[in-house]
Design a protein around this nucleic acid. Structure first.
Length: 493
DNA sequence: TCTGGGGTCCTAGGACCC
DNA sequence: TCTGGGGTCCTAGGACCC
């Protein structure tokens, strides 16, 4: 918690519905519900006029239709329009501070301490008023609620306190007075299950929670959640505003209008989902090692299955193949309500090219931002490469001849090539001794990390000193006999 | 007409290695 | 030869958020 109210939380009011009312004047002042209008849809956003009748986000659409009057408009989402409006607002926020954390399409934290602002309560209040006015003008009438406080927790609670079109500045020192009367449900991380468990122990307000012993909370909710609740109830929230977060998984799923029993149809849907996931991976420059599927049965029970490969991929057919294998483990008798495909344990291979472009060596023993696959200690057993024959540098070369400029914009990473699905043994490469080729020519083993090997390409046909990192089993990497140039000495580890 | 879709984080147990 | 602990990875499920 900071000494000043330097964190802003900006939350657009019923954004999807507000954009629809902005774009269709006939809807203004009327109940509007945006969401899945057919089949098994749920409400994404209800306008404030619809909330009067009890409609709210995540409610089954059928239930909302029962509650709301006949003049209610039910609309499918128009994400492109919402995205455009969101971008306009985020642009405004970027003008307020360089440190903005976009939480979702309609919500963001702004760190006012990251630049020069008057952080007095009066100063922050004036700034927030100005910002609200700018948002309404720039979006054509979509309003935002703002909370300002000394922590993310209080800023978010503040933006919620006087919705819609509200502004709450929690003065430093007032945090507990604001927090303790609120129901526990208002704390981020307290959902239906946690709320129920707390209610069973007669804990209803955040003040009640603050009086609960830490041991009880840990006992009920586990170490992480227990300690988290204990701290939040005391307004103890040091979480920083962070501008960018790493993507951890990419997935696609579909709930069928009618439960699907036909196995051929299920396989077809699985392929479509895998293709969508692969396309999104490629668009983001990501590859992943773990393929997950998710199956929801008609009784709403949900099962997941996962398999992790040695090498990451963004290949739709490969993902689909693994997904099919996983689906075969699950009984689909009685039909399936939902099918999903996801990829996790992601890698961003753009890093690899950054090293090469800068003419620098990649880190040889750690790869700080990324989880690493398991691998045997290195160096260890005799090289598995010595018996292999020389791979011709030209034989497999269909990739761009200059990876320095070519590969970061390539539609698919060179690591995406399909490979046997069976569990592979980790190849062992010895720095300074083993020589290999990729599709661009000969190189020598420069260093190795866990599951990775860095190759320095140096020879008659390759640029001097180009260094790239590969997974030890990358199919592009072929053991080779030494070419007729001298192998450089190994690099220091 | 009961319950979307895209995510994140945590836990627990088993496998495996040192 | 037997036993054990710590660490990491993986899988499955659950809670939660917007």
């Amino acid at each position: 918690m900071r000494g000043r109210a330097s964190i802003l939380h900006v939350d657009l009011d019923a954004m999807f519905a507000a954009v629809e009312q902005r774009d269709k004047p006939s809807l203004r002042g009327k109940p509007v519900i945006v969401g899945g209008v057919a089949g098994r849809g749920v409400v994404s956003t209800a306008s404030y006029q619809a909330r009067v009748f009890g409609a709210h986000s995540a409610m089954p659409m059928a239930q909302a239709r029962r509650l709301c009057p006949p003049n209610t408009a039910y609309l499918s989402p128009r994400f492109v329009a919402y995205q455009r409006t969101s971008a306009v607002v985020m642009e405004l926020l970027a003008g307020v501070s360089p440190l903005v954390e976009q939480v979702s399409i309609d919500e963001a934290f702004v760190d006012l301490a990251a630049t020069d602002h008057d952080l007095s309560v009066a100063g922050v209040t004036a700034l927030a008023h100005r910002l609200k006015a700018e948002i309404a003008i720039a979006t054509g009438g979509v309003t935002g609620s703002i909370g300002a406080a000394s922590s993310k927790l209080l800023a978010k609670i503040g933006s919620d306190l006087h919705k819609p079109d509200g502004l709450t500045v929690v003065a430093p020192g007032d945090e507990l007075a604001v927090l303790h009367p609120l129901p526990v449900r208002r704390l981020g991380g307290v959902g239906p299950a946690t709320e129920q468990r707390l209610h069973r122990s007669r804990i209803r307000t955040v003040g009640d929670l603050a009086a609960a012993p830490l041991e009880d909370l840990v006992d009920w909710f586990g170490t992480a959640h227990g300690h988290g609740l204990f701290r939040l109830a005391r307004a103890d929230d040091p979480r920083p505003v962070v501008s960018e977060r790493e993507t951890k998984s990419v997935s696609a799923e579909e709930t069928f209008d009618v439960d699907v029993t036909d196995p051929a149809r299920l396989l077809h849907e699985l392929d479509l989902l895998a293709t969508r996931v692969a396309a999104r991976l490629r668009r983001s420059g990501l590859t992943g090692r773990t393929v997950n599927i998710k199956v929801r049965h008609p009784d709403f029970t949900t099962v997941t299955r996962a398999v992790t490969r040695d090498q990451p991929t963004d290949d739709g057919q490969l993902i689909a193949g693994l997904a099919r294998r996983l689906l075969a483990e699950i009984t689909t008798f009685g039909g399936i309500r939902l099918l999903g495909v996801g990829v996790s344990t992601l890698y961003d291979f753009a890093q690899d090219d950054l090293f090469s472009a800068a003419g620098e060596d990649p880190p040889t023993l750690d790869f700080p931002d990324q989880p690493l696959p398991a691998a045997p200690a290195f160096p260890s057993s005799p090289s598995s490469s010595s018996s292999s024959s020389l791979a011709s540098p030209s034989a497999s070369s269909s990739a761009p001849s200059s990876p320095l400029v070519g590969s970061s914009s390539a539609p698919s990473s060179p690591f995406a090539a399909s490979s046997p699905v069976a569990v592979e043994e980790m190849r062992v490469w010895r720095p300074g001794q083993d020589v290999c080729h990729d599709e661009h020519g000969p190189g020598w083993v420069h260093g190795s990390g866990i599951g990775r090997v860095t190759i320095r390409f140096e020879g008659p046909t390759t640029p001097i000193g180009r260094v790239r990192t590969f997974f030890v089993n990358d199919p592009h990497l072929q053991p080779a006999d030494p070419p007729d140039w001298t192998i450089p000495a190994p690099a220091a580890p």
